[in-house]
């Protein structure tokens, strides 16, 4: 048996031994906690609209986002967010709370290496790819929009 064949057989065997993630509970927790975060965001927005007569829905939405970002960063700093994330999975990552956590957690972690070379430069190690891809995608969409608009 040559090496490649041996490795393939071994990896196929390992694959069959790996315990599988339990889909149903994972999905349920993600749905419940993710949904709860959305409800919280909506509550902030609706309350602001109800309290302040002059506030536009767009402004209220921005404040709701700021509120969620703050809350996620605070919970990250208190060391609670990762425990919630371990149960919720995508439920906390997909909403803006995940983005907030992905910036706050490396900022905390690399503080020991100094403000500039530690915290500031390492802050985006997790969120960086999201920002890069977001910008690239928006450029492509913008170009498509521009070309279609010209006709």
């Amino acid at each position: 048996m040559n090496k490649n064949e041996r490795n393939e057989r071994y990896n196929a065997y390992v694959e069959s031994k790996i315990p599988k993630t339990h889909n149903f509970p994972s999905l349920l927790y993600a749905f419940l906690i993710g949904g709860l975060i959305c409800v919280l965001g909506q509550t902030i927005k609706d309350s602001l609209l109800a309290i302040f007569d002059t506030m536009t829905p767009q402004d209220a939405g921005t404040w709701a986002l700021i509120g969620l970002i703050f809350l996620a960063s605070l919970l990250t700093g208190l060391g609670v967010f990762d425990d919630i994330g371990a149960i919720a999975g995508a439920g906390t990552i997909v909403p803006i709370t995940g983005f907030s956590n992905s910036i706050a957690s490396p900022a905390l972690e690399f503080k020991k290496e100094g403000i500039i070379f530690g915290m500031c430069s390492k802050m985006f190690i997790v969120a960086g790819p999201v920002i890069v891809n977001g910008v690239v995608a928006s450029i492509i969409v913008g170009l498509v929009y521009l070309i279609i608009g010209a006709f």
Binding site: I18, D82, G85, G98, P106, L108, F110
Partner: peptide, 13 residues
Amino acid sequence: RMPLELGTQRPPT
């Protein structure tokens, strides 16, 4: 691996 406080799930292995 990842920063300690990052809220991700660890794989079963």
